[in-house]
Structure formats: structure tokens, C-alpha cells
């Protein structure tokens, strides 16, 4: 049955694409010439020849031919050139019907300057998106990071730094270093391009985990005093570079049993000394002078009921603890 053979040709098609079939004259002629010349061929293609008079589905002839590879050899190209010229869609049209060459430029690799232009375009578009759809007047981000020189400091501090560099808002980075300000730490954070406040804290980092945890809390308080002193206006976040133990402290009236510093955010104005209408539930930083066992940011508050979850953070993991440290007596190879 000729019609079923036509259906068969549809069923046999591999692609789920538009319909199409090999054009009749030029392709058949090219293939026949190729057969005569004797090229090696990779495919067997069944051509159904449709005459104009019998396009109702009848098949007048069946011709089995071999088709050449798409990447033709020079001889095949000359053969193609000898074939009849392709038809035009109409008089005066510049569009040609039939087979076209697939244009590939000699050096296909991207031009680095153009790649940079593309990224600048994307950056400009994203800035426009933030202007149109993002927060209207974004507050400055005040990031607090306690740190100390150690084998893996560069790994951790660089990771925090890269994250802060990607924040599309103003960022002030307060880096509190245990012991004193060192060139090693300064050389790392200098690459950030961010506004940084790099200060030392007059205590050396200890060895035991619990003591280290306490010291870091004191270092964070030290940073908060700087926020107050400089009257920085923004949102304070605690961006730790080091790992720390989870706090297991639990107050009688507290519903937040495991609140980590890094999950806590507050408005920096709450720390200012002379703030008008300062709420009663925020403790003044001065009450912590000399205190060395602050285990949770909830210590800052006199009334923990004011704490609220932000956004939809309860539905996503927003924070991970990267527990990668070396022995305290190890040394990083000299650079």
C-alpha cells in the first residue's frame, strides 16, 4: 500500500521536529553524482519522489541513494558547485531556497573584550532590576567577623570576603582580630575592595573550644561598641569566619534555645548611646564591660519576645557551619 508506505516514512523519523523531506532535484542529482565518484557514505536514505501531478499521497518511484557527510571533502564541494543553482523564493528576493552552507568562522573562541561587555550588560540589567523590584532604600550591611591568624584563616576569611563582595548593597566589614592587627589578616581583607574596619582585640586566641567561643563573643561585643562609637547606620550581621560550638543554653522563658550569633540580625541604631526613644528591652553595651561569659546574642536583650523571624528563613537552610581547622600547633607553609 503506497499510502501506508508514506505513513511509514513519518513513523521512521528520528526527530520530533517539523516535517520535511529532502528536496527533490538538486539533492538527488548531487547524490547520484557522488555515487558515481565513489565516496564513502555514512547513511542510507530513502527518497520518496513526488511528482507535482500526484501529490495526493501517491508514490511514483522509490529510489535508494547514499548521502554524503555534512562535512564534505573538497572534491564533494566542487561536485556540489556543479549542481543546479538553488531556487529563489520570488523575483527580487534575496532569500534563496534549497541547501545553504553552514557558516563557521575560522576562530570560534569568544573574544574576551566582548565577554566582558556581555557581563557589564548583565550587571547593568540586574542593577535596573534591583532598582525596579528590589528594596527601595536598602540599608547598609554591617558585617562583623572575629578572626585570628591560623593555618586555615585564609580559606575561611576569603570565603566570607567573596560572599560580602557579591552583596549588591553598601557593606562595612568590621574585622576584629584576636591579639593584635597583623599584616597577614590585613593583606587578605585588603583585596576585598570593601570599606573595612580592622581592629585588634587585646586577648590572644585560646586553645580550648569553650574558651575560644567565649572570646569570640567578646570580640563581637567589641565590634558592636565600634558600631556605637562610629554611629554606623545599617543592619548588623555576624559573618563568622571560624567554626564554633552550637550554644545549648536555654532560658526559662526563652523559646529560642539554639540561636547562633550568625543567625541574628539587628538594627545598628539600637546600639547607639544617645538614641531617642531607645526601647527598654535592649540592654546598654556598658553593662557587658568586664563580662566574659556571653554565650548568645539573646544576652543583649532584656525581653526576648521582641525577636521575630525575618522573611521565610524557616523554610530554607540559610547557614552552614564549615568545620575545617588544623591542629593548633600546625604551620601553613611559608608563602
Amino acid at each position: 500500500m503506497k499510502l501506508s508506505a508514506l505513513q511509514q516514512s513519518y513513523l521512521n523519523r528520528r526527530s520530533n521536529s517539523f516535517r520535511g523531506s529532502l528536496p527533490l532535484d538538486s539533492s538527488a542529482a548531487c547524490c547520484i553524482v557522488s555515487v558515481v565518484i565513489g565516496f564513502r557514505f555514512s547513511r542510507l536514505v530513502f527518497l520518496f519522489l513526488f511528482s507535482a501531478a500526484s501529490l495526493g499521497g501517491e508514490i511514483s518511484a522509490l529510489l535508494v541513494v547514499h548521502s554524503a557527510l555534512a562535512t564534505a571533502s573538497p572534491i564533494a564541494k566542487s561536485v556540489s558547485a556543479a549542481c543546479p543553482p538553488a531556487n529563489r523564493t520570488a523575483a527580487g528576493s534575496r532569500v534563496v531556497v534549497g541547501r545553504h552552507g553552514i557558516r563557521v568562522r575560522p576562530w570560534p573562541h569568544p573574544n574576551p573584550e566582548e565577554v566582558m561587555r556581555a557581563h557589564r550588560i548583565i550587571e547593568r540589567i540586574q542593577r535596573e532590576q534591583r532598582m525596579l523590584f528590589g528594596v527601595k532604600k536598602p540599608k547598609m550591611v554591617i558585617a562583623v567577623t572575629p578572626t585570628q591568624v591560623r593555618t586555615f584563616q585564609k580559606l575561611h576569611l576569603s570565603s566570607v570576603m567573596h560572599s560580602l563582595m557579591l552583596v549588591p548593597y553598601d557593606v562595612v566589614w568590621i574585622v576584629v582580630e584576636a591579639g593584635r592587627v597583623t599584616n597577614e589578616t590585613a593583606s587578605i581583607i585588603a583585596k576585598s575592595g570593601l570599606r573595612t574596619i580592622h581592629v585588634g582585640f587585646n586577648h590572644r586566641m585560646t586553645i580550648s573550644w569553650s574558651d575560644r567561643h567565649k572570646l569570640e563573643a567578646m570580640m563581637r561585643l567589641h565590634a558592636l561598641r565600634i558600631v556605637r562609637k562610629e554611629r554606623l547606620d545599617g543592619i548588623v550581621i555576624f559573618a563568622d569566619d571560624s567554626n564554633m560550638h552550637r550554644c545549648s543554653f536555654c532560658w526559662n522563658s526563652c523559646s529560642f534555645r539554639k540561636l547562633e550569633w550568625a543567625g541574628f540580625v539587628l538594627n545598628s541604631k539600637l546600639l547607639w548611646k544617645d538614641l531617642d526613644d531607645k526601647p527598654e528591652w535592649i540592654k546598654d553595651l556598658e553593662v557587658f564591660d568586664g563580662v566574659d561569659d556571653i554565650e548568645s546574642p539573646l544576652y543583649l536583650l532584656g525581653d526576648t519576645s521582641v525577636v521575630e523571624p525575618l522573611g521565610s528563613c524557616g523554610r530554607q537552610v540559610l547557614l552552614w557551619w564549615l568545620r575545617v581547622e588544623a591542629r593548633t600547633d600546625s604551620k601553613f607553609p611559608a608563602q
Binding site: 526527530s15 521536529s17 555534512a70 534549497g98
Partner: peptide, 17 residues
């Protein structure tokens, strides 16, 4: 699609290349 292998195995017809 970039090539229509079923209907144009050599390429150059589909999408005029």
C-alpha cells in the same frame, strides 16, 4: 533543534543552515 537529522541529514536545508 540545530539539525533536523530525520528530514535533512546533511544539513543546510533545515533553517537554511
Amino acid at each position: 533543534l540545530f539539525y533536523d537529522v530525520g528530514n535533512d541529514p546533511e544539513g543546510g536545508y533545515y533553517a537554511r543552515g
